[in-house]
Amino acid sequence: MAAGLGVLTPSAAAAGRRVLPGDSIQEAVNFARPGDIITVMPGTYYENVLITKRVTLRGYGARTVIKPPVTATTPVNPVNPGTPVAPPEPGATGAPVPPGAAAAPVAPAAPGAAANGRALTCSQADTGICVMGTAEQPVVGVDIRSLTVSGFKRNGIWASHTDRLSVQRVIAEKNGTWGIAQERSTRGLFRDNTARDNAESGLFIANTVDREGGATDTLGAVVRRNTLTGNRIGVTVRRVRNLAVYGNTATGNCGGIFVVGDEGEPGAGDMTIRNNRIHENNKFCKGNSRLPDIQGVGIVLTGAEETVVRANSIRGNVGASPLSGGILLFKSFVGATNTDNVIQDNEVRDNKPADLANQGTGSGNRFLNNRCESSVPAGMC
C-alpha cells in the first residue's frame, strides 16, 4: 500500500525527515537541506506551509491532511504596501490547538522574500502550501505528493516563480479560490490529483494573476489524469502557451475546461487538449464581473490560438448560459478572437444548446471528423 501511495519505505524515510502528528511540517521544511525528502505521517496538521527550496513533501494521501491553522499568525516581515493580508477567523486568537495537531508556525521569509513580500503574503493569506521563488531565482524541482489540503480560505496549493514543480496524487478540496494553482512558472507537472468542491478552478495555470499581459511559455507544462468534481471550473489555463491537458476527468463542475486569452501578445494557445472525459458539468455557478453564469459547459476557448482539441469525450453538458454546450469557441469579452484552432475527432453528444459552437469573428478554425448531433452554425457535425 505504501508503495502504491508513492510514500517512502521506512528505510528510505529514515534518510530524510519524518513529521509526526503534533509536529510542525513547516519546521521540517525550514531545517531541510535542498534535495531532502520530508515524509508527513498520517494525521491532521493545522498550519500553512511555505516552501522556498528544492524538497520533496510526501504524505499518505487522504490520511495526511493539512487544514487551516486554528491559532492566528502574525507576520514577521512587512509585505508590499497595499497587499492585503487575510484577517484571522473571528475568535481564532488564542484558540487551543486540537490534540494531535501541529500549531501553526509563523513561516520565515525566504531569501529575497522580505523585499517583495510575496512568499510571506502567500503563507499568511490562508493558503495551504505555498511554493515561492523569485523572478531572479525560481525555486526548482519541488515535489509534492500524496497528501490532502482542505478548507483554506484561498488556495490549497499555490506556486509562483517555480520550475519543474511536481504535484501528484494530492487531494485539494473545499478551498475558497483554487484547489491547485500556479503562475509565473515553467515545466510544471500536475498528475493524478483530485480537486473537488473548490470555489473557483480545481486546477489553475496562468501567466500572472495580479496584472494583464501577453501569454507566457510554460515550456511544456502537463496537466494529466486529474479528477475534477464540484468546482466552478475543472481546469483553467489562462494567458499561457505550450502545454498539454490530457487524460483528465471533469464531471459535476459548472464548467469542464477553459482556455482563456485576451488581446495581449503573444496570444494564449499553442496547446493540446486531448483524451479528456468531460461529462455532465451541470452545476450552476452565478456569474461575476468577468464571466456570465456558468452551467453545462464542456470545453470553452476564448481568445485562443493554435490549440488542438482532439479525441475528447464530451457528453451531457446542459445549461442556458451563453457558455453552455459541448465545445464552444466563444467571443472574448475584451475582443480577442479565436484563430487557427483545430477541433478534431471528438465524441460530443447530448450537450445543449449545441454540441459544437463557433462564435465570434475568428478565422482559420477547423472542425474535423467530430461525432456530434448539433452545431451552431449548422453543418459542423
Rank of each mutant, 00 (worst) to 15 (best):
Met1Trp: 09
Ile144Val: 13
Asn248Ala: 02
Ile314Phe: 01
Arg164Phe: 08
Leu189Val: 04
Phe284His: 10
Leu57Gln: 01
Val167Lys: 03
Arg33Phe: 05
Ala113Ser: 15
Gly287Glu: 01
Val297Asp: 02
Thr251Met: 04
Leu301Trp: 03
Asp345Trp: 14
Thr272Asp: 02
Ala114Tyr: 01
Val29Lys: 11
Asn226Pro: 02
Ser363Asn: 11
Ala135Gly: 14
Ala3Leu: 13
Phe190His: 04
Ile233Lys: 03
Leu328Ala: 10
Glu89Trp: 09
Asn155Asp: 15
Val259Lys: 00
Val309Leu: 07
Gly100Ile: 09
Ala215Lys: 12
Arg169Ala: 08
Lys153Arg: 08
Pro88Trp: 01
Gly22Arg: 07
Lys153Phe: 01
Phe330Asp: 08
Val223Phe: 06
Asp197Cys: 05
Gly22Ser: 02
Ser146Asp: 06
Ala110Met: 13
Arg145Trp: 03
Met132Tyr: 11
Ala250His: 01
Ile299Asn: 00
Phe31Leu: 15
Arg371Glu: 03
Asn275Ile: 03
Lys153Glu: 05
Gly100Val: 09
Gly202Leu: 08
Thr229Gly: 06
Asn338Gly: 08
Val106Tyr: 00
Pro78Phe: 00
Pro69Met: 06
Leu301Cys: 06
Asn48Trp: 11
Asn281Phe: 01
Pro34Asn: 12
Met380Thr: 08
Val106Ile: 08
Thr227Gln: 06
Phe367His: 09
Thr194His: 11
Val97Met: 00
Val245Met: 01
Thr218Arg: 00
Ala28Val: 10
Gly360Lys: 07
Gly112Trp: 05
Ser332Val: 14
Asn317Arg: 14
Lys283Met: 15
Ile25Phe: 07
Glu305Ser: 11
